[in-house]
Design a protein around this nucleic acid. Structure first.
Length: 218
DNA sequence: CCCTGATTCGC
DNA sequence: GCGAATCAGG
């Protein structure tokens, strides 16, 4: 399979919506999750909450990334040490994506704050400079009537809620599609679900809402 | 073991 | 550019 525009678009959207590489690979079909990850990186999509992130601080600089696990090639010249690690200033996550936001709440902080006072720190917090192509999808091929009026994967964009409804792969799987809470991947309502402030155990009874409607059944 | 993403490197 | 192999962490 080749990476067509369509497939790349799907990959991007799924990646940004928080799908795992495996899920994306499954959905796309014909590719492995490694292929998805590799492609994602090549596309510039990077990082994002990965469960496996080296805590690069200073504790173990010896095994930073992948020094020299095994003598594979014949020659392995010693990597020149970089004595001057850049301080790596926080990237300006300022994204001007207001358009029809009727009310502009005072939000002086760089990080946006949700309705419940939660601070975003989750998926989709990336600079979206690369979105020149208008996500308008005119007269799309909407084969299934089930999803005809629902937000499909390909309808995702930076302005609509990516909260999944149902399970990927099911015929009626779709996304919320409401207008996002600016700065968040979800609408205000679903932000409330996604970013619940951790309350004391005492009065914590509501069952935790799971994204994608819960674990996939296979 | 399962899973995750990250990185490398031969193709 | 692609992605399997591998690494690294949960």
């Amino acid at each position: 399979m080749s990476w067509t525009e369509e497939r790349i678009s799907t990959l991007k959207k799924m990646w940004e919506s928080g799908m795992t590489a495996s899920q994306i690979a499954e959905e796309l079909g014909g590719v492995s999750r490694n292929a998805v990850i590799g492609k994602a990186h090549r596309l510039g999509l990077q990082s994002r909450p990965s469960p496996v992130k080296s805590n690069e601080g200073d504790a173990k600089p010896a095994k930073a990334a992948r020094p020299a696990p095994a003598p594979k090639a014949a020659s392995k010249p010693a990597p020149p040490p970089s004595p001057a690690p850049a301080p790596a200033p926080p990237p300006p996550a300022a994204k001007a994506q207001e358009e029809d936001a009727e009310d502009e709440k005072p939000r002086p902080m760089v990080r946006s704050v949700g309705p419940g006072g939660f601070v975003r720190q989750n998926p989709g917090d990336q600079a979206p400079p690369a979105t020149p192509a208008p996500p308008r999808r005119l007269v799309p091929a909407k084969p299934s009537p089930e999803v005809a009026d629902k937000t499909s994967l390909l309808d995702l964009n930076d302005k609509i809620c990516k909260w999944p409804m149902g399970h990927p792969g099911e015929p009626d799987f779709h996304f919320c599609g409401d207008k996002v809470n600016p700065g968040f991947p979800y609408c205000v309502e679903h932000c409330g679900h996604a970013y619940q402030a951790q309350l004391p155990r005492r009065d914590r009874r509501p069952p935790p809402p799971l994204p994608y409607g819960g674990p996939r059944v296979r």
